[in-house]
Nucleic acid binder design. Structure first.
Lengths: 363, 363
DNA sequence: CCGATTTTGGAAAGCCCTTTCCAAGATAAG
DNA sequence: CTTATCTTGGAAAGGGCTTTCCAAAATCGG
């Protein structure tokens, strides 16, 4: 009966050069005149050695047939996969693509297969993807991006990640340390606080904040951190000048509009929770003929490489995005510590540039 | 003997809530008191129906055990996978991440598993990845990015893609139509030509071109297209003013430096082969105190969303990046035409903005 | 109430590999 | 020339799922 199978497969591969489909290891073994076992040993070169003769014959058969091992089958047989799932909110957002870049570079060097999901924010989509990764028996999953304040969803996501871990997968997070797994933790609050202080030192006093979406913890961390930083200099912010909006160019544009609608006088300085928002705000200000930094200062957060050349150069808080991705990849590759998840804090570095330069005390 | 297996698996899952690992369909079947077959039928709900009773019992068992089907095993059994591989040159480059964004959005909606490789350009890396996808028995592979003039590598890549196709996978390309597969073809030459004409119409006469890497066909297409467009107005470009450089911010910066080193007079207008290069060039010009567009005009190509707000707004050629990704994804999902590969040309739209505004004829 | 259909459940063969476990040949030691 | 020790190749039992093929049970018309 096995013969039947051989015959079938064999004939399939003998359809000639027109059809490389479905060449199996058995075909290779037949062609080389060795047993399936031997062929397997040659290809997955384990500890057992096979005689030179046969090795050569097998390799030759492989070439002639254009055989490629079926990695899925191998994964099933060995119970190991080398797939790692990566979840980001939006891959076309430079924040995430920068992180993904570093991540993928390291992962590929380690011969990991990176699968990417770009699930418009929300723990629901993330949960689904983690579930998918569990079904794929992925080796690891890396969840990137801010958590929200939706406790129920968070619990679900944690549950799914728990199941994933229990089934033998590694989980790593880049963002708030809320998932109970190894985490690369950007210090949003501390970075924003430092920025707040720095701006206060520069002499700014009246601030507006374009704060990102309500409920998004990264937005919240940056806002409260910023306010704390200002508070250290006894500067407070008019609540009406704290405007929420999407973490996007348009979000920044609109939030800036809202601030402008508050009327004069303009704030001394506007803090946008991300560089991307800052760029939107900048566009809005320009449309109004308001000069930066002469009429109003503007600061962002992230220091996206793509936006380092906007004019005027943006004051911001630098996050080593690419490196954070690399770190996450490495975390996946090293053994988890037995007791508790590792948390790697990543400090942000305040970078003062022209966009917040105080106008000369002329007036 | 089957009993042995059952017993083993069973005990595994009975390790209790501490270990969800390795719950197999057999475990579910046992727990529900049905046969493996029935359990399978319930879960993969094919055409055959199972009685309400048993369906319920099985689902209950699934929940209790926290079972998730092993998709790898399923793929092996059915011979079908829903993985699609995507190869880009650099995912952190907004050009690629924009395309990937559109692509992933459509693909995920179709429940495809997207695997991404960010192989610093070069057909070699691409070939490897296509080979990997063949080994994974991926459903499709999408190769994104410019081809080079390296004939040997190209042939190898074609060969690999051929093998992939023959083994039943679909292949799609975004870039030059050189792979013999369905292709989304950005009309680089035509777009650049139109841009050249438009700039000539605006009155620019002395040009410099920051042309991207030698050997990269997209760079070449854009250059020759641009020159053709100028030629239509009998404008020619001093060969020394055609400078090659990487498709990157720094590449643009350096290329611009080279142009500046040529000494005065400055060209009327500089064409950078990509927006990203244009931004680098802009930074270089600014560093020199040269104003755009007053002292020199500057145009890019791509119209990257991320860079729409640079100042001054860049004249460029818009490519619907996101849509191109979507189209590629859809091409993967539709049946290939039997006779010859489909080629979908994507025209670029010239967008004139301030960066190439001719200074008033004041002088 | 009986033969003819239609459900519905299960045994077993496959999918394509890997990995014991065994046995036969080759080599070393005595 | 034995006996003990490696090498080296193969049969067969998995790994976790799908699916064909059968048979038992349930439904139906007359």
């Amino acid at each position: 009966m096995t013969d039947v199978r051989r015959a079938v497969s064999g004939s399939a591969s003998q359809r000639g050069n027109g059809d490389t489909a479905r060449v199996t290891l058995q075909d290779v073994a037949d062609r080389a005149g060795v047993s399936l076992t031997t062929a397997s040993r040659v290809l997955s070169d384990g500890p057992r050695r096979v005689g030179r003769q046969l090795v050569h014959r097998v390799n030759q058969a492989v070439d002639e047939l254009g055989y490629t091992a079926n990695l899925q089958a191998r994964a099933v047989a060995t119970g190991q996969s080398n797939m790692v799932g990566v979840v980001v909110h939006d891959i076309s957002d430079p924040y995430f693509s920068s992180i993904a870049g570093g991540l993928i570079e390291v992962a590929e060097r380690q011969r990991l297969l990176v699968c990417l999901s770009s699930t418009a924010a929300g723990e629901a989509g993330e949960r689904q993807y983690v579930a998918l990764m569990r079904a794929q028996r992925a080796r690891a999953v890396i969840v990137i991006g801010s958590r929200t304040d939706d406790q129920a969803r968070l619990a679900e996501l944690r549950g799914e990640i728990g199941a994933f871990s229990r089934s033998g997968g590694r989980a790593v997070c880049i963002g708030q340390d809320l998932l109970g797994v190894d985490t690369i933790l950007p210090e949003n609050a501390a970075g924003a606080e430092a920025l707040g202080r720095a701006l206060a030192v520069q002499g700014h006093r009246r601030f507006a904040v374009l704060a990102g979406p309500r409920g998004l913890l990264t937005a919240r961390d940056r806002l409260t951190g910023f306010l704390d930083g200002l508070a250290a200099w006894s500067v407070s912010v008019d609540p009406r000048c704290i405007v929420h909006g999407a973490f996007s160019r348009d979000g920044g544009y609109e939030a800036m509009s809202t601030v402008l609608a508050l009327g004069r006088p303009l704030p001394d300085c506007v803090f946008a929770a991300t560089d991307v928002m800052a760029v939107g705000a900048l566009a809005r200000l320009r449309a109004e003929g308001i000069r930066v930094p002469d009429d109003v200062g503007l600061a962002g957060f992230d220091d996206l490489p793509t936006l380092r050349d906007v004019y005027p150069p943006l004051t911001t808080v630098r996050l080593p995005l690419g490196q954070m991705g690399e770190m996450a990849a490495r975390l996946v590759l090293t053994e988890p510590s037995a007791d508790r998840p590792r948390v790697v804090p990543v400090p942000g570095e305040v970078i003062l540039r022209d966009s917040t330069l105080r106008p000369p005390p002329a007036r």
